[in-house]
Design a protein around this nucleic acid. Structure first.
Lengths: 221, 221
DNA sequence: AATTATTTTTAGATTAATCTAAACTATATT
DNA sequence: AATATAGTTTAGATTAATCTAAAAATAATT
């Protein structure tokens, strides 16, 4: 494994994400879109990455990430998500403020730093957006946590955590009796204001605003 | 103030340090030495920095850092030292393992991140090496802490903290009755093994090894 | 199947940071 | 003052990452 540049790491991460975890082929234009660069630049970089063995590439046929490339991407993603946890849990940032900073921090090179950070944070399994954190071998063990408001009508899921952990929000959840572990079924999504009618534990139905659904993290059934 | 590149930040920091806080002129070769680069590269960069107004430069006469450049350098130094405190105090690194990592972290751009980190660390005034941390305006308020073993015979100083904070070392200091706040006068430095004979609080004399003196931080009287 | 449209690649430049080798300036020494 | 040495700058290349414009390949449409 050769040393990759910062730009190469970013390309691999983009390709990993666009390919849905490494399975699909990815075309030049979509990479250019994602990285806000031009297709010509992508063509150049693609050849470099192929030379280093991190992607398989046939001209005009798009690219496919290799195992090597996938591992690199997963380590960068691991660092990104661990730093996000640090920023939110330790420094008091809100989850929607941390992406930019984590984009920078994810390129810091020091395996020891990352394992120490992981330990300091209590070996978290998810970042503040609910995305799973790969382990040091790139393995993602846990099911992804999803924001309730992004799910479709009819979906069954379980409430596993909150994004907003302020007292105002937690008190509200207490009042409407919606604790962690609640079984949720989406019964209706009101088009007007995107509020949701949900069934809790197969019995009572309640309505929650879009703002509330934005802050509930669930795991699909 | 324009945006500076990572390399430009490193040059300014080097010039700041070499100039003794911005006062002295700095010559091309010493910058090249410090940054492990070639004089030709330094000449190129010097012109760029002069164009941006961060240094004053007359050909063949060396450079002098401007107020603008000094501020930039001090902010980078501030970040470097705060991250070092984080690595040692929070992640359990030893003070001599953190420089490399802090060299990377010091270039992360986010004023908010740094003020939050500062708060999280309890607004420290010194880094783990005993060097003072500039505030957000670049002001260094506190007297520098110095490693005892670097001082000359005859110096008077006060013990303010330890670099090694392991129990073995702290117990030893307890045993020889050398607590924080002790007034120390260096009475002799033994050439053979660099051990030190010191007078404590103007009364009793004790001898400490070089290794011990390496781990005692003092402030000059 | 021919043409059009889209996508991708190449060719040629540009910017930042670096280098080696050669030229130049300043300083020190006889 | 002339010359040798040390320090500095310029000239010309190189690598990484990007760009625009033009060429080439693939896909879509009549």
């Amino acid at each position: 494994m050769e040393e990759l540049t910062l730009a190469e790491e970013n390309y691999l991460k983009a390709i990993y994400h666009l390919s849905g975890g490494g399975s699909d082929q990815v075309n030049t234009n979509s990479i250019a879109d994602k990285l806000k660069t031009k297709p010509a630049s992508v063509s150049d970089m693609i050849r470099k990455l192929a030379d280093k063995g991190t992607i398989d590439y046939v001209k005009y046929q798009g690219v496919q990430i290799t195992n090597d490339g996938k591992n690199t991407a997963l380590q960068v993603i691991r660092k990104h998500r661990l730093w996000e946890v640090f920023l939110v849990d330790k420094l008091g940032f809100h989850w929607d403020e941390v992406h930019e900073i984590a984009e920078q921090l994810e390129h810091i090179r020091s395996p020891l730093l990352i394992s120490r950070l992981d330990e300091f944070l209590g070996f978290p399994k998810f970042d503040p957006h609910g995305d799973p954190i790969p382990d040091e071998f790139g393995v993602i063990s846990s099911k992804p946590r999803i924001i309730l408001s992004t799910l479709q009508n009819g979906t069954n899921c379980t409430l596993v955590s909150m994004r907003d952990t302020g007292n105002a929000f937690l008190n509200y959840l207490d009042r409407i009796q919606l604790p962690i572990g609640s079984e949720i079924r989406i019964q209706a999504i009101i088009e007007f204001d995107n509020s949701m009618e949900i069934q809790v534990n197969g019995t009572r139905s309640i309505t929650i605003s879009k703002q509330v659904a934005d802050n509930l993290l669930v795991v699909r059934k």
